[in-house]
Nucleic acid binder design. Structure first.
Lengths: 135, 135
DNA sequence: TTCACATATATGTGAAACACATATACTATG
DNA sequence: CATAGTATATGTGTTTCACATATATGTGAA
Protein backbone atom coordinates (compact mmCIF):
# COMPACT_ATOMS: atom_id res chain seq x y z
CA UNK A 1 0.00 0.00 0.00
CA UNK A 2 1.25 3.42 -0.92
CA UNK A 3 -0.10 6.56 0.68
CA UNK A 4 -1.82 8.99 -1.63
CA UNK A 5 -3.27 12.00 0.18
CA UNK A 6 -4.25 14.50 -2.47
CA UNK A 7 -5.97 16.98 -0.15
CA UNK A 8 -4.76 20.49 0.77
CA UNK A 9 -1.31 20.44 -0.77
CA UNK A 10 1.46 22.88 -0.08
CA UNK A 11 0.45 24.35 3.25
CA UNK A 12 0.75 23.55 6.88
CA UNK A 13 -2.24 24.51 9.00
CA UNK A 14 -4.26 27.01 7.06
CA UNK A 15 -4.69 27.32 3.35
CA UNK A 16 -6.12 30.10 1.24
CA UNK A 17 -9.78 29.89 0.52
CA UNK A 18 -11.37 26.99 -1.25
CA UNK A 19 -14.55 27.39 -3.22
CA UNK A 20 -17.23 29.76 -1.95
CA UNK A 21 -15.31 31.65 0.76
CA UNK A 22 -14.68 28.52 2.78
CA UNK A 23 -11.48 28.19 4.77
CA UNK A 24 -9.61 24.97 5.03
CA UNK A 25 -7.80 24.47 8.29
CA UNK A 26 -5.82 21.60 9.69
CA UNK A 27 -5.17 21.50 13.44
CA UNK A 28 -1.96 19.51 13.68
CA UNK A 29 -0.16 18.49 16.84
CA UNK A 30 3.49 19.22 16.24
CA UNK A 31 5.65 16.07 15.99
CA UNK A 32 2.62 13.88 16.69
CA UNK A 33 4.08 11.18 14.47
CA UNK A 34 6.72 10.53 17.12
CA UNK A 35 4.42 9.48 20.00
CA UNK A 36 2.24 7.59 17.53
CA UNK A 37 5.31 5.66 16.41
CA UNK A 38 6.29 4.87 19.98
CA UNK A 39 2.81 3.67 20.83
CA UNK A 40 2.71 1.34 17.84
CA UNK A 41 6.13 -0.05 18.66
CA UNK A 42 5.11 -0.59 22.27
CA UNK A 43 2.44 -2.98 20.97
CA UNK A 44 4.93 -4.94 18.85
CA UNK A 45 8.06 -4.51 16.78
CA UNK A 46 7.85 -3.76 13.09
CA UNK A 47 9.68 -2.13 10.23
CA UNK A 48 9.26 1.33 8.72
CA UNK A 49 7.09 0.49 5.78
CA UNK A 50 4.53 -1.34 7.90
CA UNK A 51 4.59 1.43 10.50
CA UNK A 52 3.22 3.74 7.83
CA UNK A 53 0.06 1.68 7.59
CA UNK A 54 -0.44 1.56 11.34
CA UNK A 55 0.15 5.29 11.51
CA UNK A 56 -2.51 5.88 8.90
CA UNK A 57 -5.03 4.38 11.34
CA UNK A 58 -3.76 6.14 14.47
CA UNK A 59 -3.36 9.52 12.76
CA UNK A 60 -6.06 9.58 10.08
CA UNK A 61 -5.75 13.30 9.30
CA UNK A 62 -2.06 13.07 8.52
CA UNK A 63 -0.42 12.14 5.27
CA UNK A 64 2.51 9.90 6.17
CA UNK A 65 5.76 11.00 4.57
CA UNK A 66 7.97 7.95 4.17
CA UNK A 67 11.13 9.99 3.80
CA UNK A 68 10.61 11.84 7.05
CA UNK A 69 9.43 8.65 8.74
CA UNK A 70 12.68 6.81 8.02
CA UNK A 71 14.68 9.86 9.03
CA UNK A 72 12.80 10.03 12.30
CA UNK A 73 13.36 6.33 13.00
CA UNK A 74 17.11 6.70 12.56
CA UNK A 75 17.13 9.82 14.74
CA UNK A 76 15.22 7.97 17.44
CA UNK A 77 17.70 5.13 17.24
CA UNK A 78 20.62 7.54 17.61
CA UNK A 79 19.01 8.74 20.84
CA UNK A 80 18.42 5.24 22.19
CA UNK A 81 14.65 5.48 21.99
CA UNK A 82 14.33 2.60 19.55
CA UNK A 83 16.68 -0.18 18.49
CA UNK A 84 16.78 -1.85 15.12
CA UNK A 85 17.94 -5.04 13.52
CA UNK A 86 18.45 -5.70 9.85
CA UNK A 87 16.51 -8.81 8.84
CA UNK A 88 17.43 -10.71 5.70
CA UNK A 89 15.92 -13.99 6.85
CA UNK A 90 12.26 -13.02 6.51
CA UNK A 91 10.34 -13.58 3.27
CA UNK A 92 10.22 -10.58 0.96
CA UNK A 93 12.69 -7.73 0.81
CA UNK A 94 15.23 -7.13 3.54
CA UNK A 95 14.01 -4.77 6.19
CA UNK A 96 15.06 -3.04 9.35
CA UNK A 97 12.90 -4.10 12.27
CA UNK A 98 12.48 -1.62 15.11
CA UNK A 99 11.62 -2.19 18.74
CA UNK A 100 11.05 0.18 21.64
CA UNK A 101 13.72 0.50 24.34
CA UNK A 102 13.01 1.28 27.99
CA UNK A 103 14.08 4.84 27.29
CA UNK A 104 11.49 4.86 24.55
CA UNK A 105 8.75 3.58 26.83
CA UNK A 106 9.60 6.34 29.27
CA UNK A 107 9.45 8.94 26.50
CA UNK A 108 6.06 7.58 25.48
CA UNK A 109 4.81 8.12 29.03
CA UNK A 110 6.05 11.70 28.91
CA UNK A 111 4.30 12.29 25.60
CA UNK A 112 1.07 10.94 27.06
CA UNK A 113 1.19 13.51 29.86
CA UNK A 114 1.83 16.29 27.35
CA UNK A 115 -0.97 15.12 25.07
CA UNK A 116 -3.31 15.01 28.04
CA UNK A 117 -2.56 18.66 28.70
CA UNK A 118 -3.00 19.57 25.05
CA UNK A 119 -6.35 17.83 25.05
CA UNK A 120 -7.47 19.83 28.06
CA UNK A 121 -6.38 23.08 26.44
CA UNK A 122 -8.32 22.27 23.27
CA UNK A 123 -11.37 21.20 25.27
CA UNK A 124 -11.29 24.45 27.25
CA UNK A 125 -11.09 26.35 23.97
CA UNK A 126 -14.07 24.50 22.52
CA UNK A 127 -16.09 25.01 25.69
CA UNK A 128 -15.46 28.72 25.70
CA UNK A 129 -16.42 28.85 22.03
CA UNK A 130 -19.71 27.07 22.70
CA UNK A 131 -20.55 28.73 26.02
CA UNK A 132 -20.62 32.29 24.78
CA UNK A 133 -22.24 31.18 21.55
CA UNK A 134 -25.37 30.06 23.42
CA UNK A 135 -25.79 33.14 25.63
CA UNK B 1 2.44 42.77 32.63
CA UNK B 2 5.33 41.37 30.73
CA UNK B 3 5.57 37.72 29.81
CA UNK B 4 8.53 35.83 31.16
CA UNK B 5 8.48 32.13 30.38
CA UNK B 6 11.85 30.71 31.32
CA UNK B 7 10.97 27.06 30.84
CA UNK B 8 12.20 24.73 28.06
CA UNK B 9 14.05 27.22 25.91
CA UNK B 10 15.31 26.72 22.42
CA UNK B 11 13.26 23.78 21.19
CA UNK B 12 9.94 23.13 19.63
CA UNK B 13 8.26 19.96 20.91
CA UNK B 14 10.88 17.76 22.46
CA UNK B 15 14.01 18.71 24.30
CA UNK B 16 16.97 16.63 25.33
CA UNK B 17 16.81 15.03 28.71
CA UNK B 18 16.46 16.99 31.89
CA UNK B 19 17.73 15.69 35.19
CA UNK B 20 17.55 11.97 35.91
CA UNK B 21 16.75 10.57 32.46
CA UNK B 22 13.45 12.45 32.26
CA UNK B 23 12.20 13.72 28.95
CA UNK B 24 10.53 17.05 28.55
CA UNK B 25 7.90 17.15 25.87
CA UNK B 26 5.48 19.82 24.74
CA UNK B 27 2.50 18.81 22.64
CA UNK B 28 1.71 21.94 20.66
CA UNK B 29 -1.10 22.48 18.20
CA UNK B 30 0.42 24.19 15.23
CA UNK B 31 -0.70 27.84 14.82
CA UNK B 32 -3.02 27.50 17.81
CA UNK B 33 -2.48 31.17 18.61
CA UNK B 34 -4.54 32.07 15.56
CA UNK B 35 -7.86 30.48 16.60
CA UNK B 36 -7.26 31.62 20.18
CA UNK B 37 -6.91 35.16 18.89
CA UNK B 38 -10.09 34.90 16.87
CA UNK B 39 -12.03 33.55 19.81
CA UNK B 40 -10.89 36.37 22.08
CA UNK B 41 -11.78 38.96 19.46
CA UNK B 42 -15.18 37.40 18.96
CA UNK B 43 -15.88 38.19 22.61
CA UNK B 44 -14.83 41.82 22.26
CA UNK B 45 -12.40 44.06 20.42
CA UNK B 46 -8.99 44.80 21.88
CA UNK B 47 -5.46 45.72 20.99
CA UNK B 48 -2.39 43.52 20.63
CA UNK B 49 -0.82 44.06 24.00
CA UNK B 50 -3.97 43.16 25.88
CA UNK B 51 -4.56 40.16 23.65
CA UNK B 52 -1.32 38.74 25.03
CA UNK B 53 -2.80 38.60 28.53
CA UNK B 54 -6.02 36.97 27.36
CA UNK B 55 -3.98 34.48 25.34
CA UNK B 56 -1.97 33.58 28.42
CA UNK B 57 -5.21 32.34 30.01
CA UNK B 58 -6.56 30.55 26.94
CA UNK B 59 -3.25 28.94 26.06
CA UNK B 60 -1.48 28.43 29.38
CA UNK B 61 1.26 26.15 28.04
CA UNK B 62 2.40 28.67 25.46
CA UNK B 63 4.79 31.55 25.87
CA UNK B 64 3.32 34.46 23.97
CA UNK B 65 5.78 36.07 21.59
CA UNK B 66 4.77 39.69 21.11
CA UNK B 67 6.75 40.07 17.92
CA UNK B 68 5.03 37.17 16.24
CA UNK B 69 1.68 38.22 17.69
CA UNK B 70 1.79 41.63 16.05
CA UNK B 71 3.01 40.11 12.82
CA UNK B 72 0.10 37.67 12.88
CA UNK B 73 -2.41 40.46 13.54
CA UNK B 74 -1.21 42.42 10.54
CA UNK B 75 -1.25 39.29 8.38
CA UNK B 76 -4.80 38.56 9.47
CA UNK B 77 -5.79 42.11 8.64
CA UNK B 78 -4.26 41.80 5.17
CA UNK B 79 -6.49 38.77 4.62
CA UNK B 80 -9.62 40.50 5.87
CA UNK B 81 -9.98 38.32 8.95
CA UNK B 82 -9.65 41.21 11.36
CA UNK B 83 -9.92 44.96 10.99
CA UNK B 84 -8.10 47.57 13.01
CA UNK B 85 -8.39 51.18 13.98
CA UNK B 86 -5.67 53.39 15.42
CA UNK B 87 -6.89 54.97 18.63
CA UNK B 88 -5.25 58.09 20.04
CA UNK B 89 -8.29 59.22 22.02
CA UNK B 90 -8.08 56.58 24.77
CA UNK B 91 -6.07 57.17 27.94
CA UNK B 92 -2.55 55.78 27.89
CA UNK B 93 -0.43 55.14 24.82
CA UNK B 94 -1.89 55.08 21.34
CA UNK B 95 -2.91 51.65 20.25
CA UNK B 96 -4.33 49.73 17.38
CA UNK B 97 -7.68 48.18 18.27
CA UNK B 98 -8.68 45.02 16.42
CA UNK B 99 -12.08 43.54 15.78
CA UNK B 100 -13.23 40.37 14.08
CA UNK B 101 -14.80 40.55 10.63
CA UNK B 102 -17.46 38.19 9.31
CA UNK B 103 -14.73 36.42 7.37
CA UNK B 104 -12.92 36.02 10.66
CA UNK B 105 -15.95 34.58 12.39
CA UNK B 106 -16.26 32.06 9.59
CA UNK B 107 -12.59 31.14 9.91
CA UNK B 108 -13.09 30.64 13.63
CA UNK B 109 -15.89 28.17 12.92
CA UNK B 110 -13.61 26.27 10.58
CA UNK B 111 -10.88 26.15 13.22
CA UNK B 112 -13.38 24.79 15.73
CA UNK B 113 -14.21 21.88 13.43
CA UNK B 114 -10.52 21.16 12.94
CA UNK B 115 -9.78 21.34 16.66
CA UNK B 116 -12.67 19.00 17.31
CA UNK B 117 -11.05 16.47 15.02
CA UNK B 118 -7.66 16.94 16.63
CA UNK B 119 -9.24 16.39 20.01
CA UNK B 120 -10.75 13.12 18.84
CA UNK B 121 -7.44 11.95 17.40
CA UNK B 122 -5.61 12.68 20.66
CA UNK B 123 -8.36 11.03 22.70
CA UNK B 124 -8.18 7.92 20.53
CA UNK B 125 -4.42 7.87 21.03
CA UNK B 126 -4.74 8.15 24.82
CA UNK B 127 -7.39 5.45 24.91
CA UNK B 128 -5.25 3.06 22.96
CA UNK B 129 -2.34 3.82 25.27
CA UNK B 130 -4.43 3.07 28.37
CA UNK B 131 -6.36 0.10 26.99
CA UNK B 132 -3.39 -2.07 26.22
CA UNK B 133 -1.64 -0.90 29.36
CA UNK B 134 -4.31 -2.49 31.56
CA UNK B 135 -4.50 -5.85 29.78
C1' DT C 1 12.82 66.31 36.37
C1' DT C 2 14.81 62.41 35.49
C1' DC C 3 15.15 57.72 36.06
C1' DA C 4 13.06 53.40 35.95
C1' DC C 5 9.46 50.64 34.61
C1' DA C 6 5.24 49.40 32.21
C1' DT C 7 2.69 49.91 28.05
C1' DA C 8 2.52 49.35 23.09
C1' DT C 9 4.02 48.19 18.50
C1' DA C 10 7.35 46.56 15.44
C1' DT C 11 11.51 44.25 12.56
C1' DG C 12 15.46 40.95 11.93
C1' DT C 13 17.03 36.36 11.85
C1' DG C 14 18.15 31.48 12.39
C1' DA C 15 16.44 26.84 13.36
C1' DA C 16 13.06 23.09 13.67
C1' DA C 17 9.49 20.63 11.49
C1' DC C 18 7.72 19.54 7.50
C1' DA C 19 6.04 18.90 2.29
C1' DC C 20 7.41 17.45 -1.81
C1' DA C 21 10.61 15.40 -5.12
C1' DT C 22 13.58 11.90 -6.27
C1' DA C 23 16.82 7.83 -5.97
C1' DT C 24 17.77 3.00 -5.31
C1' DA C 25 17.14 -1.87 -5.07
C1' DC C 26 14.84 -5.96 -4.46
C1' DT C 27 10.44 -9.13 -5.00
C1' DA C 28 6.38 -10.93 -6.94
C1' DT C 29 3.49 -11.82 -10.93
C1' DG C 30 1.12 -11.86 -15.23
C1' DC D 1 10.82 -9.34 -18.71
C1' DA D 2 8.12 -5.53 -17.88
C1' DT D 3 5.45 -3.61 -14.45
C1' DA D 4 3.79 -2.85 -9.98
C1' DG D 5 4.53 -3.28 -5.09
C1' DT D 6 7.70 -3.45 -1.16
C1' DA D 7 11.32 -1.17 1.42
C1' DT D 8 14.68 2.23 2.63
C1' DA D 9 16.83 6.50 1.88
C1' DT D 10 18.61 11.56 0.59
C1' DG D 11 17.91 16.36 -1.18
C1' DT D 12 15.74 20.73 -0.65
C1' DG D 13 12.62 24.69 -0.18
C1' DT D 14 8.82 26.66 2.90
C1' DT D 15 6.33 27.59 7.02
C1' DT D 16 6.19 28.31 11.72
C1' DC D 17 8.36 29.68 15.39
C1' DA D 18 12.03 31.25 19.23
C1' DC D 19 14.86 34.62 20.40
C1' DA D 20 16.96 39.16 19.97
C1' DT D 21 16.43 43.82 19.45
C1' DA D 22 14.48 48.51 18.32
C1' DT D 23 11.51 52.39 19.23
C1' DA D 24 8.30 55.44 21.42
C1' DT D 25 5.11 56.93 24.90
C1' DG D 26 2.88 56.97 29.59
C1' DT D 27 3.33 56.72 34.82
C1' DG D 28 5.01 56.91 39.30
C1' DA D 29 8.69 57.47 42.62
C1' DA D 30 13.01 59.58 44.24
Amino acid sequence: MTHPHPHHRGHRSRSRRGVGSEWRVHARVERFIEPALLLILRDGSTHGYELADSLADLVPAERIDMGNLYRMLRALEAEGIVESEWRDDLPGRNRRTYRLTEQGASLLDTWVDALDKANKTITAFLERYRDRREE
